[in-house]
Computed example of a mutant assay.
Amino acid sequence: MTERIVVGAAVTSGGRLLAARRSAPAELAGRWELPGGKVEPGETCEHALVRELREELGVEAEPVERIPGEWPLKAELVLRVWTARLLSGDPMPLEDHDELRWLDPDEIWDVEWLDQDVPAVMEVLRRMEEAEA
Score class of each variant (00 low, 15 high):
75 A>R: 11
31 R>C: 06
86 L>H: 08
15 G>Q: 10
63 P>S: 09
102 W>D: 04
100 L>D: 00
71 W>C: 07
58 G>M: 04
112 E>K: 03
95 E>F: 14
124 V>Q: 03
57 L>E: 05
125 L>A: 06
87 L>S: 03
36 G>I: 06
121 V>F: 01
117 D>V: 01
67 I>C: 14
91 P>F: 09
40 E>T: 07
62 E>T: 15
54 R>E: 11
78 V>R: 13
83 T>D: 05
53 L>K: 07
5 I>C: 11
88 S>W: 05
117 D>Y: 02
77 L>V: 04
110 D>A: 13
49 L>H: 09
49 L>I: 09
59 V>K: 09
4 R>E: 10
127 R>V: 02
48 A>M: 12
2 T>C: 05
34 L>S: 04
24 A>M: 07
126 R>C: 00
81 V>Q: 03
32 W>S: 02
76 E>D: 14
89 G>C: 11
39 V>G: 02
50 V>F: 01
62 E>C: 11
105 P>C: 04
46 E>I: 08
98 D>F: 06
36 G>C: 03
42 G>F: 00
97 H>M: 10
25 P>T: 01
9 A>N: 07
79 L>R: 15
115 D>I: 00
88 S>V: 02
128 M>L: 13
125 L>H: 06
125 L>T: 04
51 R>E: 13
12 T>Q: 14
44 T>Y: 05
95 E>T: 10
45 C>P: 12
43 E>W: 12
23 S>L: 05
110 D>T: 13
69 G>Q: 13
113 W>M: 08
18 L>P: 14
88 S>K: 14
89 G>H: 12
120 A>E: 07
106 D>S: 10
49 L>G: 07
61 A>N: 14
76 E>S: 09
